[in-house]
Design a protein around this nucleic acid. Sequence first.
RNA 1: GGACGGAUAGCUCAGUUGGUUAGAGCAUCUCGUUUACACCGAGAGGGUCGGGGGUUCGAGUCCCUCUCCGUCUACCA
Length: 910
Amino acid sequence: MSETEIPKTYEPQSVEARWYQSWLDNNCFAAKVDPAREPFAIMIPPPNVTGVLHMGHLLNNTIQDILTRRARQEGKSALWLPGTDHAGIATQSRVEKELRKTGKTRYDLGREKFIETASEWRDKHGGIILEQLKKLGASCDWARKSHTLDPHYSKAVLQSFITLYERGYIYRGKRMVNWCPVSLTGLSDEEVIMKPQSGKLYRMRYEIVEHPGEYLEIATTRPETIPGDSGVAVNPEDPRYTHLIGKHVWRPFPRVKIPIVADVLVDKEFGSGVLKVTPAHDKVDFEIGQRHQLEVLDVMNPDGTMNELAGEGLAGVERFKARDIAAQKLKDLGLLLKEEPYENNVGFSERADVPIEPRLSEQWFIRYPKIEEAKRAVSDGFVKFHPERWNKVYLHWLNNIQDWCISRQLWWGHRIPVWYKKDADRNEPGNRHVSLEAPADIENWEQDNDVLDTWASSWLWCLANLGWEKPGMTTPELRYWYPTSALATGPDIIFLWVARMIIAGLEFYGEEKETLDDADIAARIPFKDVYFNGIIRDAQGRKMSKSLGNSPEPLDLIAKFGADGLRIGLLSIAPKGQDILFSEDRISQGRNFCNKLWNAARFRQMSGPAGDNATLEKIVARIDPTKCDADDHAILANLAASIDIVNDALGRFDFNTYTAALYQFFWTDFCDWYVEVSKSRMQDDSSRSTILAIQDICLRQFLLLLHPVAPFITEELYHLLGFCNGSDFIQNHFAGTGSDLRDILAKQRGLTLDNNAVAEIATLREFVTQARALKAQQNQAAKKDCKFKLIVKDDTARAFITHNTDKLKKLVGAADIEFADDTGNSPATPTALGTLALDMTGLVDVEAEKIRLTKELERLEKLAAAGEAKLANEAFVSKAPPNILEGAKAQLADTQAKRDEVRRLLAGLG
RNA sequence: GGACGGAUAGCUCAGUUGGUUAGAGCAUCUCGUUUACACCGAGAGGGUCGGGGGUUCGAGUCCCUCUCCGUCUACCA
């Protein structure tokens, strides 16, 4: 039994540091395979090693921590597995940037040395974000920390490539890819960000070879690619041009005859309806070129400069300079008709933030397996998205899925496990060696230089982190925790990561299987629930970014508001599935809440000696049911209801309802009412121990409910108030359900909670509010010795008031509340218990009172009229269900009574 | 171009199958230091639920339409 005095102010810093260390020392977060308990697992979305903790991480990880801690309280064997990914392009560019400062490139170092340098950089910077998560209170099982380049993980990644290769889902080919001229690598479609750009549309004309002097008008935004044109295309159904199909035009520079072809991809409505076809530099053009056997003329270097094929004046020039030069050339040739401003969307490299260049190159591609099953996994509810609307986004992507370019022309990553016979055709499968091991006669082979897309490693996150290395393989961890319970992430990576993890699970878990039935899908999905949190924006709605400098420093926020305060604040401002506008004032609410809780606990300790709080049963045993009044029944009933609301809300990932219920119960019901009422009731010594026991029940169960979101302060108070002993932790205790609480009260003390008590107390609270309002209106709010008169409504009300007189006097700040038959011209207001008047003994401002009552009368008359009209409506009376009808009648009667009373009061003023 | 989301108090948002007089926090104003808490307490003001139409006895909630914001997606050069 702890008798430690609770300090006056809550100091989060020392409490947080102390408990986090204690949790680590006692292995509180270490998850064990334990068949006796229900498994629960969450894999952290791996923050990339170049990143720092930002607001999005705070929210996302708070949510994961809530789910994990909650699961622990429920007695599950809860695993929250942390880790990072190697972030291929991002890390490599950071390291190369550092290198450039010393005047070197990666080629100067060589592959091996470069990877060594990058690893060092990763080890230096990569752990920071995880350390920061500890400050937030994240209850990860740190011993299981994972990284995508760990030896075991790498093996799994390479094996997954080999497996897909062997199963025929991987191919190598010369395709159009999104080329980043800065990172000098291909990118997947998902790594390209479309941005609206204002540029120019150049309208030009090409002379028709067969009809000298006649011209075709063509529009383009990219005149620099003219040297790469190997044809022009029109729509086959465009009557303006049918006679020209099969003829030729002169490409202006270098001047060459190119054919006019017909292709349905050409939009008749756009520009002149004629498209210049540059197969090497545009996806659509490539397709058209393939269909019509047009020559592929690559006029650009990998770094975005023009090459020799571009011809004189352009060769060697950077692509955007080349655009101006090409335009000038057209003008000089008299072929440029018009330049007009033009707004279009241009793809940008997500990492390097420069326009990507569609470019033909040799790459590895994945044709996705198990697409149909992946759709069913979500549409049939094996994987549940929260909010559900993301289903559509996911399914839309799967319905339009494109092959995935997985090779990256980088060094930092998993090197593709393919060797080619030297000096042989690489596209001939016989000349390849695809394996975890290099070929024995290595001198005759050379390994592919490329590495895999980072997402082609992180899509195995749920599998590899539980020990998976190859299909069919199983481990105790996989058997126990797979499929994992939940995933919490942002909707921005639904394609990059979430969808691909589902596909990977379906394809790689278990033995090879062509098609999957429902049972297979249920067993193979990587997770059962996915919660998509909103993106956090600044108060103006802009995305948080380093360049804007609008992202607050998370550790500063923790220092300022405490980790618990920050967590509560963040959660309470996060609307369901919507983006979140961040502002510090709103986080302060969380801190304020912690302070309120702290002081409520402190006040409990000041109110009387601690009883035996070791278990809920022992606290309940301290209750004397004969001392319980309506307030006790009401607060316990509210507690039971709140427990159920919280349980239900967390089960549905409805964090808004969770925090709202916590606030309402604790602040409004418990502190503002019950504790205040207790102050007067505890003057009676015989009631005190019962009231304190009930306060202890409320505090204990509330701490348990709050614990997942505010782990530190709840742990601290749980111990300080003696709810568990020093070697135990709050995570081992659970609030149960509302009916569990009711059952214990009934069984142990024969205390059956009175369902009318809540309504009765609501009436009393409203009455108090009205009385206080009367005082405030008369500028008497501060006075404690006011006299009230009450024309009591009936005997029930009389008994009720009599029974609660002491409480009322205390809560309202009154010397007396006496029953009366008349209130004279005192300011008065009708209440549910009768007409209440403040005795002003002649100090009444009659005119002001008239104005107030007239206003009130107007309101009531309007209401009554509306109610009367409703009940006079034949259709309503005959069609509305009985409870609605009765409700409307009761309400009208009440309104009419009040209206008449206000009329009477008004008349009394003369 | 397509899809999705949003529009409710000055601000940020709740409002579960349509049902009594639409809620919360913050902000504002007034009052207040009583046995916890000024990171507090009491009270007040503030909304024709984006516009228009429809279904219904009854619509913030369902249907249609329009407007404005946001996000994702796409092969209009």
